[in-house]
């Protein structure tokens, strides 16, 4: 196992994959955290913004719509991550592991 880890560590593709995966994870985390905390900060500091109706015809307020928006956004982004991971990361990962396992002893 030690030897396998060493080979993977020496593989530039492994580090490229790790970087891509963590860029995506952190970017999506930032979007979710930012939208959630923005919503919370408006409630904490500027509740009047959320009390406005969306339009003259409706009683639905900006706050309710934004809250539901945060829920929908969070679920959608988990879908985006899964899609990316299934599409690229798993295949790349398998390739890297297979490469390390098949490499002749050095």
């Amino acid at each position: 196992m030690e030897e396998l880890y060493r080979r993977i560590d020496a593989d530039p593709e492994f580090h490229a994959l790790s970087r891509r995966r963590s860029r995506l994870s952190w970017a999506l985390t930032a979007v979710v955290a930012f939208s959630f905390y923005s919503w919370i900060f408006v409630i904490a500091f500027k509740p009047a913004w959320f009390a406005q109706a969306l339009g003259p015809e409706t009683v639905l307020t900006v706050g309710v719509a934004a809250g539901i928006g945060v829920i929908v956004l969070a679920v959608t982004l988990t879908g985006v991550y899964i899609w990316q991971a299934n599409q690229y990361f798993d295949a790349q990962n398998r390739k890297i592991v297979a490469h390390a396992q098949n490499e002749p002893q050095t």
């Binding site: 994870s25 985390t29 679920v75 988990t78």
Partner: peptide, 18 residues
């Protein structure tokens, strides 16, 4: 009441991503 609903959900994407 919506604060609990949104807060309860917002942790999940982070659990997934990280």
């Amino acid at each position: 009441g919506l604060i609990y609903a949104v807060g309860g959900l917002a942790g999940w994407p982070m659990v997934l991503f990280l």
